[in-house]
């Protein structure tokens, strides 16, 4: 079905969103931003300028932010730091660690240990994390099976 023009700069948005979603899906690969811009029918500079205007980051900065976000998810699942680094598309553990610390304020291993400890606490004592209004309105504390978790 042909695309319909429905608002200002529709075709521009359509191509930029496609490029952004391409980065979202292929962040773990070596992405050539030149090929993305030509795929989206832009000159490289027009592509970078238009992308930055919409997303507040250059395509390269955006790619790094996606990799860091994905790294956080894998670290939360307990994957070893070295594996996470290569899994999300970084090529050097030291540059991954430095970049991660700069963005997240903690090294990947420290971030991982904090998150795993939090997850463990949430699983073992869920009522420490659920506001009382929800617990009371649902009567969760009425069920004696849950009492252990509260103590």
């Amino acid at each position: 079905m042909p695309l319909q023009y429905t608002y200002p700069n529709f075709y521009l948005y359509h191509r930029l969103v496609k490029a952004k979603m391409y980065i979202d899906e292929h962040y773990d690969q070596s992405i050539d931003l030149n090929s993305i811009s030509s795929e989206a029918c832009f000159s490289k500079f027009h592509f970078i300028r238009s992308f930055s205007k919409i997303y507040g980051k250059t395509p390269h900065q955006y790619l790094i932010s996606v990799r860091v976000e994905q790294a956080k998810l894998l670290l939360q699942q307990g994957m070893p730091v070295n594996n996470v680094c290569f899994e999300v598309g970084f090529e050097s553990v030291s540059s991954f660690t430095g970049l991660f610390k700069k963005v997240c304020g903690a090294t990947p291993s420290l971030y991982q240990s904090r998150r795993l400890a939090l997850k463990q606490a949430q699983q073992s004592k869920p009522f420490h994390f659920i506001p009382g209004c929800y617990v009371s309105s649902r009567g969760w504390l009425e069920n004696s099976n849950f009492q252990e978790a509260v103590k």
Binding site: Q123, F127, F129, I130
Partner: peptide, 12 residues
Amino acid sequence: HTDAAFGEGNRW
């Protein structure tokens, strides 16, 4: 933010 199962079939 939080994904914790508890009791019988409850999930926060």
